[in-house]
Amino acid sequence: MRIVVAKPGLDGHDRGAKVIARALRDGGHEVVYTGLRRTPSEIIRIVTDEDVSALGLSTLSGAHDVLIPKICDGLREAGLGDVMVFAGGIIPNRDREFVFEQGVRAIFGPGSRTDEILSFLDACSDRIEKGEPIGVGQSAGWRWE
């Protein structure tokens, strides 16, 4: 899969994002890493130009409740509804349902194992092959929990 791993907003810590990017690479995926402090519109631009199937968002600052909806809406508006979005970082339990409702298919918090993320991506590939919905603009329902 081609995947963008992005750091939206103002938090300046990307060790987690880099660990994920590296693990996905070692799992055979092509990973475009954006670097720190990207705006939602920059991230949508990157997803467009790079023609990726998936977007991983890492946020630790607590702004996930603003940034993730902006990015998911922006993707749908840009006609990128078939792109799968997953999230990671610090997303409190009380916010998980809200984040899933934005179209995010998985949330990987602290303690997640990288092999679990790879299994999730394999499951996504299977669903794509079968034509089952997975994108941020496609019907809700399936999520990785």
């Binding site: 590296r22 070692d26 799992g27 092509e30 990973v31 670097g35 990207r38 519109s41 631009r45």
Partner: peptide
């Protein structure tokens, strides 16, 4: 480069060229 072992790749040139992520006059592809 793609990894010779896994076939995956980490494409990180963009992060050093953030001028390329806005405006209609630039297109960047890794």
């Amino acid at each position: 480069p793609s990894s010779p072992r896994s076939g995956g790749a980490l494409l990180a040139d963009r992060m050093r060229m953030d001028s390329t992520d806005s405006g209609e006059s630039v297109f960047f592809r890794s």
